[in-house]
Design a protein around this nucleic acid. Structure first.
Lengths: 338, 338
DNA sequence: AAAACTTTATGAATCGATTCAGGCTCGATT
DNA sequence: AATCGAGCCTGAATCGATTCATAAAGTTTT
């Protein structure tokens, strides 16, 4: 049997289709009696609104697209979760796309979202997609950048102050008595990596005492690259080891932690302190719980979605940049030396 | 300017709307000349198909819903990724919903997916949702269970043989010389936990020599619960420690690893061997790389999506249960004692 | 009691892509 | 020369919810 349509409901309730629609969308303008009968009919027939027809006529969409840079990174998982929390309260579902830093996939998902006429798009962008986003906007689909400051201010964005985060991380290392600090991270064309390094440099230069800051470059922000960097570091003569490492994100830090274990002896934190960035779920869960610069990842997702919905409600809104401050989370990996 | 519709394209190309539609959907029945001109018009006008209208008339959907039990667990992240890989090749997008084991959220997402008339639903179910899924099926929306064997065979499912996995894990511990084994896991109303324990018991009983198997129950499969269980274990007199632990999943194992470190001395693997289940990305990345029973998580997602699409193509297909075998991945955490 | 509002209900028109019965052209067959 | 069929195209009808001009019924004001 074909699923019930609004016409069936109207017939069953003894009212017109217009009234059924009004019950569903503006119950204030309908009598209590009609509401009751319509709901009864809906119940009896198991009626479910056809979202395609609704979208076609009314032009309102109940989905939001989210294009994520790296689905494997728990940080993005948390951001999506935050957006989902905010969305589900409003009956909105999330169309999810993972690009793995592939511009082709990025484009594909934006095309798909345009066909779907989503209500809006959240995106942690990889390539230069301003033109694509402008085009979406011209079709009434706004976009909010996530985890990326919109330099030119053409779109709203929600991000974290990475420069300040880098500064705080290195200041913390200095405060715990370390003076020979290594920054592990890369590639430097990722904005966040650059910013975190800049902050680290600022902290090292402004320190009361002399602080060494060396840079150990990695190819990507992964556990494997972190482990490789760690192996390179401890392959040096012991005298050349740093006494602290600031990793550009927690994945690198986890890799480093793995490399900094020799003969069952954990070098962290007594020989080498270690601090990461993100404070993902696995930072606290590491063998030596990791100090980290917490990004309010869930809040980032919530906020981005909220801004997006505000912009769909009023397309004249001027784009705004929301920047959160990271928070220093101190755990065992940066305990002062014994 | 309103976005171009198929009518605008037809006018611009000097053909009828029917022809444009044919170019898009069955190019074989259209002359080369028409195809050329239609494509030219599409290009010139920046036409994008309106998926809502298409869905309404043709009844075909380009989205698939995926309801996930625990979005924080990297295992599910991988499964989603696998489904996404398979989907994106077919121009299908994934509507993503995370339930966090909340039956209310589960129901909400299924309602949402029904309104959306998704092509089908992938779900790692929590509560008893057979009635809801039957209803979806009666509306032409098939469902495939993920990471859960469909006992009654009413739906297709893709899962992993947890009993066998549990057996293999414990056999491996025995083979490396351990005889006092602890199973850490819970709650036992989660099917997988029960199955893994059953497999573990079988291995212990069938061993050539006598093997002790104790059960340390946890409230959930999280890192925190793992750490708590580990703390309880090493609080005992040393003589009562097990010499190996089989954790019901990797999250627990990571928590255990954290607890099994005393005075900077890592007890794993020399005092206590440790093996997990899932082989998520953080198992290999742990301070002591974790042995684990690998679930082919990405393949699970791919396979589930493929089966789903086959069922949408032919609703008469009989549900089938696909069961993968887990694979033993040996890493340092179960190295033989030195 | 008439006029002026209010409140509520009606149902045809509409959104844009697809479908399909019917029509046109042109070469092949009889 | 008439008939037929293949190939291609046309455009009205359709999917189901929303919107809105119109109307009916009821209430208040004069």
């Amino acid at each position: 049997m074909a699923p019930a349509s609004i016409r069936d409901v109207a017939q069953h309730a003894g009212v017109s289709v217009g009234t059924v629609s009004n019950v569903l969308n503006r119950p204030g303008e309908v009598s209590a009696e009609s509401i009751r009968r319509v709901h009864e009919a809906i119940e009896a027939l198991g009626y479910v609104r056809n979202d395609a027809a609704r979208k076609l006529r009314a032009g309102v969409s109940t989905t939001v697209g989210f294009v994520v840079l790296d689905g494997q990174n728990p940080f993005f998982g948390d951001v999506v979760r935050g957006a989902e929390d905010e969305a589900s309260g409003q009956g909105i579902a999330i169309l999810y796309g993972n690009t793995d830093e592939d511009p082709k996939r990025e484009r594909m998902y934006l095309d798909l979202f345009e066909e779907q006429q989503v209500r809006g798009v959240l995106i942690s962008p990889y390539g230069d997609i301003n033109p694509r986003l402008e085009r979406l906007r011209s079709r009434g689909i706004p976009a909010v950048l996530v985890d990326r400051f919109s330099g030119d201010g053409r779109f709203s964005s929600v991000s974290v102050d990475s420069v300040n985060g880098g500064r705080m991380a290195v200041e913390h290392l200095i405060a715990t008595g370390r003076r020979r600090i290594a920054f592990v991270g890369g590639p430097f064309d990722i904005r966040q990596v650059n910013d975190r390094l800049a902050g680290a440099r600022a902290a090292a230069e402004n320190a009361a005492e002399h602080v060494d800051l060396e840079v150990v470059a990695t190819d990507a922000l992964t556990v494997a690259d972190g482990a490789a960097a760690g192996a390179r570091i401890i392959a040096r003569p012991r005298a050349d080891w740093p006494d602290a490492i600031f990793a550009a994100n927690d994945l690198l830090a986890l890799g480093l932690l793995q490399a900094l274990i020799v003969d069952g002896r954990m070098l962290v934190p007594d020989e080498i302190a270690l601090i990461g960035f993100d404070d993902n779920a696995f930072a606290a869960a590491a063998a030596v719980p990791l100090s980290s610069m917490r990004q309010p990842s869930r809040m980032i997702g919530r906020t981005a979605l909220r801004i997006l919905l505000e912009e769909t409600a009023d397309p004249e809104l001027i784009p705004r940049q929301t920047v959160f401050q990271p928070e220093l989370i101190v755990r065992a990996s940066t305990n002062p030396r014994r």
